[in-house]
Nucleic acid binder design. Structure first.
Lengths: 138, 138
DNA sequence: GCTTGACTTAGACAAAGTCCATTGTAGGAT
DNA sequence: ATCCTACAATGGACTTTGTCTAAGTCAAGC
């Protein structure tokens, strides 16, 4: 965790109480939080922090490649701190629960040149959908 | 196209001018429109149509399986009329252009049981990201 | 041509996110 | 240790996307 703060400082990130709190929130839990949830947890540690700052900071962390933005549903973006090991997501269609998963194979290699239409393809995002045990059982 | 209208009528869909116009807009162009774009095109054909009706109708078409909802970016949902041939999407990270693509293999089979966490996995959505020729060239 | 219940409408509302002018402050310079 | 200043934070207005509701309208069956 201080790894993250160290890395950021090394890249010339100006360290402020707000940024530290946001980074701590993301590192503290291995879940996929919405911006609002990050804000709520940040407020618990630093009551004066504003929504705009949380959005700004999240945006910077994404630009720096420290955090992934995940848009699994139409609602809010979610932020995934597990940016250094490539992985994909499994989402419950009913309750929205998200798990990180590691499929076999390399989906990037599965897109033939004839299907690339001249694009420079750099990334692939796989989202599995289904029902989690709780929602399927009920 | 009248195929679509026929199918819908066969399923007990009450046919109205508004619904016809929305269905025509989706069938008319092989692009991925946002709800607002659908509304704009629908207004061109039927000026009195309201936003709520477009949203309702799109939602019904999705429920009926005639149209796919695609959420490639954080902005608006897009609607893909090409629901009867399974496919995935290639998105330009800069301009947002979308192409339908057909990767090799079956990503659903690439998720081992040990990575399913008890979920009933029913669907998979693959989004390739990169730069389109225009954006990469510039 | 009626009737009826499903459909449509306009506009208020809500949620998620962005923008901007102002105020505050981290960290280097002195 | 103190000062400076560029960068960061604030908060509130604003935008975008989508949902809801009460009242009016109309497609389809009789």
């Amino acid at each position: 965790m201080s790894d993250l703060l160290e890395r950021l400082r090394g890249r010339g990130w100006r360290m402020t109480a707000q940024r530290r709190v946001v980074a701590e929130v993301l590192n503290g839990e291995h879940v996929h939080l919405t911006a609002d949830e990050v804000h709520a947890r940040a407020v618990a540690k630093l009551p004066e922090i504003s929504r705009a700052t949380v959005y700004n900071t999240l945006g910077e962390l994404v630009s720096l490649g420290e955090v992934l933005e995940v848009t699994t549903d139409k609602r809010a973006k979610r932020y995934d701190p597990n940016a250094h090991r490539p992985h994909h997501h499994l989402v419950c269609a009913r309750c929205g629960a998200i798990r990180d998963v590691h499929p076999l194979g390399n989906p990037l290699a599965d897109l033939p040149d004839t299907e690339r239409f001249g694009f420079t393809v750099s990334d692939v995002e796989v989202t599995y959908r289904g029902l989690c045990p709780d929602c399927a059982g009920a």
